[in-house]
Amino acid sequence: MGEVKDVGRGRFSIVLDPLDGSSNVRSNNIFGTIFGVFDGTRLPARGADLLAAGYMIYGPATTLVYAARGAVHEFVQGGGGRTEEFFLMHEGLRLPAKGKLYGVGGHRDQWIPEVKGFVAELERDLMNLRYGGSFVGDFNQILHYGGFFAYPAQVDKPAGKYRLQFESNPIAFIAEAAGGAGTTGTERILDVAPAGIDQTVPTYVGNRDLVDRFRKRL
């Protein structure tokens, strides 16, 4: 369960998912941390009010992806033999013009029909399936190779799984800063009015053309 803690009279509010993909730890697969930064905004808050957002990936290399002022940058830990420092690896990351990958979480038999139909369409387009069980790892592949990722509305979970404050808003913020888009299927993720700190929303992010194609199915 999420909670809001007042730790003083500071200027910023921070949202944090400290261990995204926790089920991957046991099998030594990718997991990470997601964060968002608000300037003078009390929580819960709309994603459109984010000042910055980012995530860290603990994988073959420890990397940091950071978005602010409409730009996305990627850093790697330990460059040049200085293990405690982060070094700029990619500046001004943009989603590739043509998406190559897709991934969808949840159980296929519980996906709503529109999701099943869109996945079939992506497969006919010969897009490759990639799904690793951590939002940061799955989205990071979309950021680098282009495509579409979702944890969708399901028959048994119409509001999806990802928490708006801690997961969907920060990743959608990064997607938009990289030239992509994020939607709940009915509205832009960053425009969702928060109903509570643990509110969940269906989450669809990636190349803008693919997100728009999906929305037309709903």
Rank of each mutant, 00 (worst) to 15 (best):
A159M: 10
Y66T: 03
T41I: 10
E187R: 14
G81M: 13
A45L: 12
R108E: 15
Q110K: 07
G146A: 13
V76Q: 07
A150P: 05
P60M: 08
L218D: 03
G59Q: 05
Y204D: 03
F139G: 02
G106D: 04
G137P: 00
N140I: 06
Q154T: 01
L129R: 14
E3C: 14
N207G: 04
R108D: 14
A177E: 07
V37G: 01
T33V: 11
T63F: 09
L88R: 09
V119Y: 03
R11G: 14
L50V: 15
D39C: 06
S22Q: 11
D17N: 08
N128H: 13
Y55G: 01
E121F: 05
P152N: 13
M1N: 15
P194A: 10
G180Y: 01
G206Q: 03
G54A: 05
Y204S: 06
F38T: 03
R46Q: 06
D6P: 07
Q199D: 11
T62N: 06
V104A: 04
Y58I: 01
T62P: 09
V65W: 03
A45S: 11
G36V: 09
F87M: 06
T203M: 12
G10P: 13
F12R: 13
D6A: 13
Q154W: 03
Q77H: 09
R208W: 02
L122G: 00
D156W: 15
M127W: 02
I171H: 04
T83Y: 12
R217F: 03
A159P: 02
V65H: 05
L16D: 00
V72F: 06
